[in-house]
Computed example of a mutant assay.
Amino acid sequence: MTRVEHGFGPLWDEDSRVLLLGSVPSPRSREAGFYYMNPHNRFWPVMEGLFKEHIGPDPAGRAAFLHRHRIALWDVIASCDIEGARDASISNAVPNDLTPILRSATITHVFTTGAMATRLYRQLIEPGLPEDGPSIPVTRLPSTSPANAAMRLADLQDAYRPILRAIGLTADEGRKGH
C-alpha cells in the first residue's frame, strides 16, 4: 500500500451544471496532473462519442471541452492508501471538500464514475452535506477504467447519456457537438 495525495484540484467554474466524481486519480493521472490520463481509460473516448466532438490528448483542450459543456470534474478522495490504481484496495480515505463547487456553481446533478466512487461519496461526502442545502440527485455511472473492460465503448456512451439531459441537451444535440 502506498499513501497517495490527489495532487491537483477540481476542474469547474460558476457555469458548471453537473459534477462528475471519480474515486482517486490513477498513477498516470497524478503524474500528468490531470484527469483520466491513462491511455487505456475510456473516459475521454466516452465523452467524444457522447458529444460527437474530437477532444484530443491535451489537458488544456480537455479542460476547455468540460467548461464549454458545463461539466465539473473532480474526485471523491483527497488522499488514501492504495495499491497502484486498484480501487478495491483503497483504505484510509480522506474526502475532498465539495463545498466550494456546490456553493459557487449551480450543480443540478452529481454523477459518480464507478462503484467505489459511489460508495465513498455516500459514505464520506453525503453525511457532511448541509441538511438545509439543496437536494442534488446522484447517479452512479459505470467505470471507464480498463478494469471494466467487459463493457463495450458504445455501452459506456449509452450509460453516460444522462449527462446530456442534466446539462439540458437532448441526445441529438449531444451528437451535434452543441
Rank of each mutant, 00 (worst) to 15 (best):
F111W: 01
A115M: 02
A150S: 14
N92Y: 00
R119C: 00
T112W: 03
P100G: 06
A88R: 13
A117V: 03
R122M: 13
T99F: 02
L102P: 10
Q123C: 02
G128Y: 08
L102T: 10
I136Q: 08
L124K: 05
I125Q: 01
P146A: 05
Q123E: 14
I136T: 10
Q123S: 12
G177M: 02
A93H: 05
D155P: 01
I82P: 00
E173S: 06
T108D: 06
P137H: 05
A166Q: 07
A93P: 05
D158M: 07
G168P: 11
L129R: 15
G133H: 10
G168Y: 09
P162E: 06
A149Q: 10
V94N: 00
D97V: 13
G177C: 09
L102V: 04
D132L: 13
P142T: 06
D155C: 00
V76F: 03
R86C: 07
T113K: 01
I163G: 08
L156S: 02
R161G: 00
I77T: 14
G84A: 06
P146M: 01
A171I: 12
A115S: 11
A159V: 03
G174Q: 09
A159E: 05
T108K: 11
L141T: 00
G84E: 08
L120V: 02
C80E: 03
V76E: 09
S104E: 15
I77S: 03
M116L: 11
I167N: 10
A166R: 04
G177S: 02
L98C: 08
D132M: 11
K176Q: 14
T118G: 00
P134E: 12
I101N: 06
V94R: 14
A159K: 09
A88M: 07
D172T: 11
T170S: 15
M116E: 13
T106M: 07
I101W: 04
R119G: 01
A171F: 01
R140H: 03
R119Q: 12
D158R: 14
L169V: 07
F111D: 05
N96Q: 15
R119F: 09
S145K: 00
P95G: 07
R122Y: 07
R103S: 09
L156D: 05
K176D: 11
F111Y: 11
R175V: 01
G174A: 10
D97W: 03
P142V: 04
G84S: 08
I90D: 04
H178A: 14
E173K: 12
A147R: 13
G133W: 11
G114M: 07
S145D: 11
F111Q: 07
S104R: 15
G168S: 11
Y121K: 01
E131I: 11
A150W: 10
Y160D: 02
L164M: 09
L156N: 09
P137N: 08
D172R: 13
A154L: 04
H109P: 00
R175T: 09
